[in-house]
Design a protein around this nucleic acid. Structure first.
Lengths: 151, 151
DNA sequence: TGTTTTTAATTCGATATCGCACTATAAAGT
DNA sequence: ACTTTATAGTGCGATATCGAATTAAAAACA
């Protein structure tokens, strides 16, 4: 495998990292004090996908260690954005449910980001973004599976 | 702006974040104890781009706060992977130079990642990766500029 | 059924990350 | 030249992140 080959995949991870970093910084500057991208991410996931999921499922969705998710959920619960209830199907486990306050937090954050997305659309046209998304998703899916398998 | 529009850009950040997360976890599992992606990233940058750059330039390259870069560089210096010298052109500033040990650290890390990239190439063909990279880079460049301008 | 192994979550300790405030120097404006 | 403003880097405190070990419950298996 030529060095260039490695370079391309390497560059993809590098670009993803910088995009993530900028996105986080931008979002966090617009979140209420003490709240981070991790908090927003979880609440957003509970709305986008569904709530009532377990902490472990959330940890897997974001590919973070369980212990990190425990911590993030504790913060969200302190803020009253989620509540956890026992999982009726498994007494080791919990379910995470959104509160009204949590939904409002997410709506406010999205509203605060709207100007960015508007400007972004002006500079990186929607059709280009739409064209790229499925490829990036496919790459993520491959990497995701690879992680499970290569440990 | 329809909600879907926001959704596409939003999804791009989300995918980037997960790819970054998986890449970090994978790399860090293969780095010597106490060394993180941040350390590898800086050393790698000093080789890929050039060394002798200032801490601030590095902070900008990775879009992290200056104070984070100070900390990362301190760790690298402790490990003997870089050394910092006064900047002859500006007495407030420094220059960061690689050591032989630093180059070896980077080479070893890349070698440890090789199996991943090899398997990755099997599952996500090189031509697709090559096709996607310039678009992702373009997106990063736009977001990067936007960050500077929208504060 | 009883034992062993796996799984969900948490606690704890180490370190990374980051914002704020500060110092030193440089650059800009008068 | 002198004052003002901007810039490079650091110290400190708060909190996030993560790995290792632990506990409780479930699943696998004898």
């Amino acid at each position: 495998m030529p060095d260039d080959t490695t370079g391309v995949y390497f560059a993809l991870f590098l670009e993803a990292g910088i995009i993530d970093q900028i996105g986080r910084a931008f979002l966090e500057k617009r979140l209420p004090g003490g709240l981070l991208t991790s908090h927003f991410g979880v609440v957003s996931h509970l709305i986008r996908v569904r709530d009532g999921v377990t902490p472990l499922e959330l940890a897997r969705a974001f590919q973070v260690p369980k212990t990190t998710m425990t911590h993030t959920l504790a913060g969200l619960e302190t803020h009253g954005f989620v509540e956890t209830r026992p999982n009726p199907a498994d007494r080791r486990s919990k379910q995470v449910w959104l509160t009204e306050k949590g939904r409002r937090f997410r709506d406010d954050a999205i509203a605060a980001m709207a100007p960015l997305f508007a400007e972004l659309e002006r500079r990186f046209p929607l059709d280009k973004a739409q064209a790229m998304l499925p490829h990036l998703t496919a790459f993520r899916e491959v990497v995701d599976r690879l992680r499970d398998e290569m440990d």
